[in-house]
Computed example of a mutant assay.
Amino acid sequence: MGWLKRLFGLEKPQNAQVNPEPQQYTPQQQTASAPSATQSIPPERIGLNGEYDQSGLAKRVALAFDQDSQLDDINTLWVAQTSGTVVLKGKVPSQDILNKMVSVARNVNGADAVDTSQVTIG
């Protein structure tokens, strides 16, 4: 089972990308002074297809892990996000695998840092 399916219950969407171009979005609550204002999506909130997604960074990191054959079968680790920080939680088989995961996560647009304080090795 892939990362997206295990963590978010999602099959990989068609055209999903690790670093898609962000779409413009209109905030749900608009003010009367700016009824048609659009703004760009913060990098950590860009979803798999460039749409706004509260968990966009975590989903795109999960997709990146799915696309790496060394990481696609690790099912004892979870991915979350706190703003622009990717949070890894759980257990990995080796320090080398953890280092690879950190490297992959850092290369996802919007990832400012990777927190591994909740990961055990063994």
Rank of each mutant, 00 (worst) to 15 (best):
N99I: 06
E51K: 09
A113W: 02
S69N: 10
K59F: 03
P20F: 15
N19M: 09
V92I: 10
W78E: 13
R60G: 08
I46F: 06
A16R: 11
A80H: 06
V114T: 07
T38L: 11
L63E: 05
I121S: 07
A32T: 12
A80W: 13
T82F: 15
V102E: 06
V18T: 14
N49A: 01
N75S: 14
E51H: 10
V87N: 04
S40E: 15
N99S: 15
K12H: 08
A16M: 13
I46W: 04
A111S: 15
D112F: 13
Q30T: 07
K5T: 01
P35F: 07
G47Y: 00
S103E: 10
E21M: 05
Q24C: 03
T85K: 14
T120Y: 06
W78F: 11
P93W: 02
G90L: 00
L77H: 11
F8W: 12
N107F: 08
A37F: 15
V108K: 05
P93Y: 03
V114K: 02
L48A: 11
W3S: 10
L98G: 02
L71F: 09
P27W: 00
G110N: 01
E21F: 06
L63Q: 12
I97W: 06
N75K: 14
K100F: 04
Q23H: 06
K59S: 05
R106I: 08
A32V: 11
V92K: 03
I97S: 08
N109H: 09
G50F: 03
G90P: 01
V79N: 05
D73A: 11
A32P: 12
S83K: 12
S69W: 09
I41H: 01
V119W: 09
P43I: 05
Q54T: 10
N99T: 13
Q23A: 14
D72N: 15
M1N: 07
Q17R: 15
T38P: 05
G56C: 08
S40R: 11
K89Q: 13
Q14Y: 12
T31R: 08
V87T: 04
D115W: 05
W3H: 14
V92Y: 04
